[in-house]
Amino acid sequence: MTTNISFLLNGDKISYDIKEHWTLLHLLREKLGLIGTKEGCGNGECGACTVIIDKLAVNSCLYLAIEADGKTIETIEGLASTDGTLHPIQQSFVDNGGIQCGFCTPGMIMSSKALLDENPDASREEIKHALAGNICRCTGYIQIFESVEAAQEKVAANKGGKDE
């Protein structure tokens, strides 16, 4: 029950022989060594394993690796530039106290990225709605929402800069 799949992972073409019962999370963490994506509950309740598949935020713990065949996948490892510069959302979480223990952070940031890629002007309500499936036991969420809003401003400012 081994099958070869290929997919685009953080811009790189990956081909891998997987077992059909593997989750995408298992493939990422245990086989590809991408341990930025976390396993929290393993049942789709906490959002720590969130990755972006074809532009949609998805729980990788409930997504079979075999269904990733042909898809475009983004994980937290793909966000920073090769020179180490953080993605505006990552920097914003650092600057605004959106991170404490850090366990939920990769999932929070991937959910935030999926939202802002689709809706850069998301309101506080829309941010809350999009992040409702990501649980954080440290921050009380307020700093996380503020981090996302600060990232929106940064992205908007960058865009303005480029246009001029």
Binding site: G44, G47, T50, L56, A57, V58, N59, L62, Y63, S111, A114, H129, A130, A132, G133, N134
Partner: peptide, 12 residues
Amino acid sequence: VSNIGSLQVRNV
């Protein structure tokens, strides 16, 4: 449907 599970669940 907008309040079933989480967005990650609703996407799939």
